[in-house]
Design a protein around this nucleic acid. Structure first.
Lengths: 200, 200
DNA sequence: ATAAACACTTAACCCGGGTTAAGAAATGAA
DNA sequence: TTCATTTCTTAACCCGGGTTAAGTGTTTAT
């Protein structure tokens, strides 16, 4: 862990040191519960059927979170980039096997904390619970907004919104995965992009 | 309030008295922060553009939570029945105007608690915070499952799953609203039902 | 009792996305 | 450099759901 400390994403440091006002001691204690892990492109952090016993801070790299439909097609629920947390939280809390796959799309760095260590940390650093309920609320809100978006926008509208709001995704994520995220086939995305450019 | 106390849904009593082990005093205090409200069919608890300053326990009746898409079509996100809580939680926490409409579909009874009163109650009854973070986690999990369902199932599969898992909905909710919940037009639902019965 | 409002169904036509198949372009490995 | 793999595109055909329109029940209000 020692060597990697200097490489920790500044957003991680800022979040706990500034936003949640951890003391140096609390921060050091919190960090000591993590393990630093490098994973290569295409590795999985989690597969369906496994129990999720940890959460992981994505220090560097990006990942896709997907499930399989009844025909075995991969359906990407969302992408994760630097400063996101990885995990199947249904499985994490229920202790039961989950349905999510989480695959890294680049060589990446993770800060992994086990469920047990997180519980210990929560007992020792009371601010953590506060942070966590804040995060939970934000996550619930994001999911509700996503549902709203899926219900009110067409595939084309969602594509245009994605270009508008998260253009960086197109720099790092292959179009086939973006198609899956938009819930259409790669061929349909290709056809749609063609349609859109010929409009002008 | 006095008169209506005996009509409070037994699930409400059980939740706080048994599951969260409120004392008689805590329960009485908590209840004193609510106002009992009867509303008639088609009334709105909330409209888009309004700020949501309260949450409401649906003691009796049912409601639909919907948003408008860009063409002004109503899109139902979910239905609420007895023992659900009503509110636009993005607006509740942000203090900003929300996008959700919540309309009662039957003559209904609500137990309404204002944001201020809930905050007071949280300070006086620490178990409430515990209850609330539990609820938040459940809600986040439900939303994620809903996204997963929307991404992996066709309209027909979602319809069959609805019959299987929540047949009571068909007793109380008009088909046009169920169509909106399934994200299809009433005509398409009608056609689909016809298709399905003719299969046998 | 009667009209108005609401809820559901059927049918014809259109269009976007799925499917299948093939080929082009870009990337990676030996 | 060369071959293999991966990624992206194009095209033809099909199908489910949208759209429009009309018609049939079914409630609700007066």
């Amino acid at each position: 862990m020692e060597d990697e400390l200097k490489n920790i994403n500044h957003k991680f440091v800022e979040l706990f040191m500034q936003t949640f006002a951890f003391t140096e001691e609390e921060y050091a204690l919190f960090l000591s519960y993590f393990t630093f892990k490098t994973v290569t492109k295409k590795d999985y952090y989690l597969r369906a059927g496994e129990c999720c016993h940890s959460k992981a801070y994505l220090n560097k790299g990006c990942a896709r979170n997907f499930v399989l439909d009844e025909q075995g097609h991969e359906r990407i629920l969302f992408f994760a980039f630097e400063d996101w947390w990885l995990g199947d939280f249904d499985s994490y809390y229920s202790g039961k096997p989950g349905t999510n796959y989480i695959q890294l799309l680049e060589d990446s760095e993770l800060l992994v904390i086990s469920k047990e260590n997180f519980q210990k940390a929560e007992k020792e650093i009371s601010k953590l619970t506060q942070w966590y309920s804040f995060k939970m609320r934000r996550s619930a809100s994001a999911s509700r907004n996503r549902i709203e978006e899926m219900k009110t926008l067409s595939a084309e509208e969602r594509y245009l919104k994605l270009i508008e709001n998260q253009p960086h995704i197109f720099q790092r994520i292959p179009l086939q995965h973006i198609a899956s995220y938009l819930n259409i086939e790669p061929q349909s995305l290709s056809r749609m992009r063609n349609r859109l450019t010929n409009k002008h």
